[in-house]
Design a protein around this nucleic acid. Structure first.
Length: 185
DNA sequence: TACTCGATCGGA
DNA sequence: CCGATCGAGTAA
């Protein structure tokens, strides 16, 4: 199967469904020595379209959000709070800005922790997520729904207002998801 | 050019 | 609870 065909898997109009279906698929990270880690995706969030006030692209088409308007199957990586890289998979048709934030993989809870552990940074922005390289999503012909998935509101998007912050577009595969390490009190 | 604020995290 | 830390977005 060509990369082009594989990328079409993510071109569905329904990004919320894709965020749900991404659970259970493997994220593969290859380091400088060629060592690979294959980790099940356990937590995702959907950011869907120009009307979604929590989606960066709701502010319009800019240099930063351009990649979300492009073809599906590429990485959208941006810096948050000046120190955390956020890893997203671009989804949807061309000119429909949407993406799925990868918030957790097995053994790693939290979007900033995932990228730190896998060495992800802005260099991956715009790179294909469906071809072997530095980081990719393992090929699988069919999307398989993971069982035991909990949906809830997205994290940290209250600024988007109740209509958008309240949408249950965060998905966790509870069989593999683990709560963040306890904070000290 | 000067602000403001975040799709977060770890420490107190 | 709080500070870290910096680029994008906005207003001017």
């Amino acid at each position: 199967m060509s990369s082009v065909v594989k990328a079409k898997v993510w071109a569905s109009r329904d990004t919320v469904k894709l965020a749900r279906e991404l659970l259970g698929r493997r994220l593969v990270a290859r380091d400088g020595e060629g060592f690979e880690r294959r980790l099940r995706i356990t937590e995702t969030e959907a950011y869907d379209g120009p009307a979604d006030r929590a989606c960066h692209a709701s502010k319009g088409r800019t240099a930063r959000t351009e990649v979300m308007f492009g073809p599906a199957g590429r990485w959208y990586v941006y810096l948050c709070y000046g120190m955390h890289q956020m890893l997203n998979l671009v989804t949807g048709p061309v000119d429909w800005p949407a993406a799925v934030l990868i918030r957790g993989v097995e053994g790693l809870t939290g979007p900033g922790r995932v990228t730190r552990a896998l060495g992800v940074d802005g260099a991956l922005n715009g790179q294909p997520a469906h071809a072997e390289g530095r980081l990719w999503i393992e090929e699988r012909d069919e999307l398989v729904l993971a069982p035991d998935v909990l949906a809830g509101p997205r994290v940290g998007v209250d600024y988007a207002g109740p209509e958008w912050a309240g949408k249950p577009w965060r998905f966790r595969w509870m069989k593999y998801w683990r709560p963040p390490v306890a904070r000290r009190g």
